[in-house]
Structures are given as C-alpha cells and as structure tokens.
Amino acid sequence: MPPSQLATLPIAANAFVTLFVGFGINAILRPEHALTFFEWTLPANIADAETVSSLTAIYGVRDIFMGLALYSAAIWGTKKSLGWTLIAASAVAFADGCICYTHGQGHGDHWGYAPLLTIVGTLLTGLFD
C-alpha cells in the first residue's frame, strides 16, 4: 500500500486541524493563556496589554482560518491538496518558532509539531508513493 493511502493520515491531519481551531478560539477568548504557548506573558502596562491582547486575537483568527482551510481540503479536496495545505501550515508553525527563538523562549513547542505537520502533509501528497 502506498504511504499516501494509509488510513491514519487523514485522522492525524484532522487532529492537527482541530488543534489549530482550538488554539485560535483560545487566543481570542483567553489571550493571556494563549501567550503561554509562546512562553510569553502580558505586559504590566495596561495599554501594552490591550495591544498584545488584540494582536493575540488576530493570531487566533489566523489559526481558525488555517483550521477551516484544512478542514475544507480534508472534506472537499483531495489528499494531495490536504497534504500541501498541511505543509503550508507547517511553515507557519516553523515561522512562529523562529519568532519565539529571536525572543529566547517558546520555540521548542513550535518546532516540535511543525515537522509532524510536514511529514503528514508530505505523505498525503504522495511524494513517497
């Protein structure tokens, strides 16, 4: 059986998708908690904290969008389209990790799951069939 036909790949993809949507909802509703995934905290200054909370909501909307795009590829697209969309989402996770790295913390959490997204996505594309 070619790797792209493994029944577990769409299940793994949907698990990642659900995480994106969950992270997005969390970022919108609980910005202070969402920052813990980056190992950051809200600034003490109220104006700065409000700005960071607003930016965290933007990050939340981005994650929900990625999740919905991935759900769409999973439901109405092909395994190949789902795979390439997962690979694109992994680039976002790698970028988040790089940004955290420049701040000295939080990068390990992002770089831990980004390669998994890349692997599952690559297998779904059929590149290893």
Rank of each mutant, 00 (worst) to 15 (best):
P2A: 04
P2E: 03
P3H: 08
S4D: 09
S4A: 07
S4P: 03
T8P: 01
T8V: 10
T8H: 09
T8S: 11
T8Y: 12
L9D: 00
I11W: 14
A12E: 06
A12N: 06
A13P: 10
A13F: 10
V17M: 11
G22R: 10
G24F: 00
I25W: 06
T36N: 12
F37P: 04
E39L: 08
W40N: 07
N45W: 05
N45L: 05
A47K: 12
A47P: 04
A49L: 10
A49D: 09
E50C: 05
S54Q: 11
T56D: 04
I58F: 15
G60Q: 03
R62T: 05
D63F: 04
F65C: 15
F65M: 15
L68I: 10
A69R: 07
L70N: 02
Y71W: 13
A74Y: 02
I75A: 11
T78C: 09
K79H: 11
L86G: 03
A88P: 04
A95N: 05
D96N: 08
C98S: 13
C98F: 14
Q105W: 15
G106E: 02
D109H: 12
D109A: 12
D109K: 11
W111C: 02
A114R: 01
A114I: 00
T118L: 15
I119A: 11
L127H: 08
